[in-house]
Each structure stands twice: as structure tokens, then as C-alpha cells.
């Protein structure tokens, strides 16, 4: 992936104490980057391309820490693309490029060539539209990330499994069958297992790309309840096509259309008194 990385020209300095080691990216960080950002994620003048086709145009957005932000907009508006830019999942697609602007997480330019995308994705986890548990036991699904990191301490792994499954509101349902296949769980349970797997590696940010689109209303309600609980510890960004879900779950909402950010405000404002007529038309179901 091509990236415009003007910030990397400065000589990197070691990570300062202001950024806790457990939270820092595994990259040298310039001393100026260690100043705590007012916003956890800042997107500035961001242009993104799939090959020659521009998908995002001059996005400027500051996302709050420990809040749920919903990205809404019609199909193809760029909301999932932007979500995937936040942990560089788009690197996995050939021909993608950031041609202008930057995304910073705690002041660190995540497209800097010094940033290891694998490390970034540990800090910025992702839950997908379709639950994708590995064909392994529930236990092994949860500890997968830790095992890759080389963790072998059984007591530590047990502790993480219980904590993560409790965090994902799944523990009570699976505690007696941790060594059965994750694929044997219901769709809603599988999605919560994926959330447990995500939080097992202690990310700071969880990206959710339509996490409930394949779930029934009861499973959806459980995931939404979980999102509400998780925001005490995590910053969550959710892409959703459900206006009700955005209204129920998020603190702030960003509306995108044709690759541009049209409006970003408190969710209450977006659903009660949006400033932009396009936003109003979309949330009212009049868009077309």
C-alpha cells in the first residue's frame, strides 16, 4: 500500500513514559507525538483510494475516547472503508493508497512506515459483519491472539479466557463447555465469542463493521447491551445500516455520503435536529 507519510521524516524518539507501555504501539514515537491527544483518534484531510478510484475525500474527524461512535450512510459511502483505515485492514487489499492526510491514534500517525500494522491491530481490534470464529474450541478462540504473542502460562490464559468471556457477556453460557468447538455456538454467541477474542488482547479501540446484521433481535439486543458495557473500557466505532441501532448504541454519529463526511455530531442531535438536509433525509429514510 502506498502511503503519504510526511511525519516520518522526523527522527523518531523512544516511546515516552506518557504513553503506557501496554498501550503503546511497537514503534519508536517522536517526542512530540507523546503529548496526550484530546481525542483518541484524529483523522485529518484524509483521502483514500482503491486504485485510481477515490473512496474517501478530505475526511476530518476527531473521535472521542471511551465513547461509541456510529458511522452511518448508504452503501458505498465509504464508512466501512474509513473504519478499515483505522487499523489498516485496507493494507490487505491490493492497490489501496492514502494519498493525502493522516490518521493518528493517541497522536501516532498509524500510516507511518514505522508503525507495524500487526501491532496496530492489537490496539485497534475489529469485529466483522459475519462472525468468524476459528474452527477451534471456545477456549482456543479466545486465547488465539495471546498464543500468537507467545503466551504459554496456563493460569494467565485461563484468567484471560474468563475475563474476556465475561467482558463479552458470554461466560455464563459457555463456562461449562469451553473446550467444545466455537462453531457449535449460535450466531449471536459466535459474534460475542469474536468480541471476546478481540478484547482478549486488550485493545484500546474496537471497530465493529455491522456486527448485528446477521443476528436476530434477541442476539442483537445482547450485542448492543455489550457495546454499552464495553464503552466503559474501550473506544468503539460501529458501522451500521440500522438507524435504530445507531440511535440506541452510540454517543456520536457521523453521516457519510459518496466518500465525504456530511455531518458529525452527538447522536441525539443527528436524530433530533440534524444540521444538514441530507442527513435528515437519510435518517428519516427519505434518501434516494
Amino acid at each position: 500500500m502506498e502511503t503519504s507519510t510526511p511525519s516520518t521524516s522526523a527522527a523518531p524518539a523512544p516511546t515516552s513514559a506518557a504513553t503506557p507501555a501496554s498501550r503503546a504501539f511497537a514503534v519508536p514515537v517522536r517526542s512530540t507525538d507523546t503529548v496526550q491527544a484530546a481525542n483518541l483518534i484524529e483523522i485529518e484531510n484524509f483521502d483514500f483510494y482503491y486504485g485510481a478510484k477515490q473512496a474517501l475525500f478530505d475526511i476530518n474527524l476527531k473521535l472521542d475516547d471511551k465513547r461509541v461512535t456510529a458511522f452511518i450512510g448508504p452503501s458505498g459511502c465509504g464508512k466501512s472503508t474509513l473504519l478499515r483505515c483505522l487499523n489498516r485492514m485496507n493494507d490487505l487489499i491490493d492497490g489501496t493508497s492514502v494519498k493525502r492526510g493522516k490518521v493518528t491514534v493517541r497522536g501516532i500517525d498509524i500510516n507511518s512506515r514505522d508503525v507495524d500494522p500487526i501491532e496496530l491491530r492489537k490496539r485497534v481490534g475489529m469485529v466483522f459483519q459475519k462472525s468468524n470464529p476459528f474452527p477451534k474450541s471456545i477456549y482456543e478462540n479466545v486465547v488465539y491472539g495471546l498464543r500468537i504473542q507467545g503466551e504459554t502460562n496456563k493460569a494467565r490464559l485461563d484468567e484471560v479466557v474468563e475475563k474476556s468471556l465475561r467482558g463479552a457477556a458470554l461466560w455464563d453460557e459457555v463456562k461449562d463447555r469451553l473446550h467444545e468447538s466455537g462453531l457449535g455456538l449460535s450466531g449471536g454467541q459466535q459474534q460475542r465469542l469474536c468480541i471476546a477474542r478481540t478484547i482478549a488482547v486488550s485493545p484500546e479501540i474496537i471497530l465493529m463493521d455491522e456486527p448485528c446484521s446477521a443476528l436476530d433481535p434477541i442476539a442483537t439486543a445482547k450485542v448492543e447491551e455489550l457495546i454499552h458495557d464495553l464503552k466503559k473500557e474501550y473506544t468503539i466505532i460501529i458501522v451500521t445500516h440500522s438507524m435504530q441501532q445507531a440511535a440506541r448504541c452510540s454517543d456520536k454519529t457521523a453521516f457519510f455520503y459518496m466518500g465525504k463526511l456530511v455531518e458529525y455530531a452527538d447522536t441525539r442531535t443527528i436524530f433530533m435536529n440534524p444540521a444538514n438536509p441530507q442527513t435528515e433525509a437519510y435518517v428519516s429514510g427519505r434518501f434516494g
Binding site: 438507524m243 440511535a247 436524530f271 433530533m272 435536529n273 440534524p274 435528515e280 435518517v283 428519516s284
Partner: peptide, 9 residues
């Protein structure tokens, strides 16, 4: 109809 914004008001 789950009205929002102007319609809800």
C-alpha cells in the same frame, strides 16, 4: 414508522 428529526418533532 420510527420517526426521527423533524418528523419526530
Amino acid at each position: 414508522r420510527s420517526p426521527v428529526a423533524t418528523e419526530l418533532r
